[in-house]
Design a protein around this nucleic acid. Structure first.
Lengths: 119, 119
DNA sequence: TCCGTCCACTTTGCAATACAAAGTAACTTC
DNA sequence: GAAGTTACTTTGTATTGCAAAGTGGACGGA
């Protein structure tokens, strides 16, 4: 429960756009490329690059096919992705809680001297 | 309660490092530069630049002085900053909630067609 | 009193990346 | 068969997160 637990925040997930995508995917099972783009009002290019980043991290599975001669891409969370997102959400929940509890123990701990662990 | 409400996420606050700083400040009243650096295990330069960004956004007030011949910098949230952070936290709370509720209405709404508002 | 070191920052340089405009490719409509 | 639409991907740019190096004042030893 260190204040520096923020370091655990996964940058791949934390970025605005990707947080939104992960959030959306977590609430469903699978979404088409266009569904993501339209729901989040993102540009096509933006969706593509974020999906690539998420895919490279192993957080989403991207399935490409042709339907009626058109490319059709669907995206789903992987098990890893769902776990990572869950963990991220837990960290955010901690931040939310601490922020809502207002000035607390940290005020007493922090105002004093150095706390740097064991550099 | 749109899925695209993620667009409201303030980039100045959302960035990992600054979210941590804001979070820390929200829990106290005022902190020294070194307190932030040590609590979050950040490099000096990192703290400086994030503080500048937050200051330029009007979210924190930075006070510089000399104490015992050493520079001494303290940081506190402004009223604007506290409000903005609160709003941000509320948005995060929404994401957390939705993520925890699992597959829900969005699954039904989204899997179908286009929803792009009125482009 | 000069030298080196420490502390508390700030400046600078680089590598990463978010974003949209432009490009591609297959189909459909006029 | 030309023009438009859909579903993406590639490319260029401008931003920015980050740490290494720099600054300046205080202090301790020789």
């Amino acid at each position: 429960m260190n204040a520096a637990s923020y370091l655990q925040l996964d940058r791949v997930i934390h970025e605005r756009g990707r947080l939104a995508i992960m959030s959306l995917l977590a609430a469903t099972t699978e979404l088409p490329f266009t569904g993501i783009r339209d729901a989040l009002e993102m540009t096509d290019g933006n969706v593509t690059t974020h999906l690539r980043t998420l895919q490279e991290a192993g957080y989403v599975a991207v399935t490409k096919s042709f339907q009626k001669g058109r490319p059709h891409t669907t995206v789903a969370l992987t098990v890893t992705g769902r776990k990572a997102f869950q963990h991220h959400v837990d960290l955010l929940a901690q931040i939310v809680e601490r922020a809502r509890s207002g000035p607390s123990f940290e005020a007493r701990v922090m105002s004093g001297g150095r706390l740097r662990p064991q550099s």
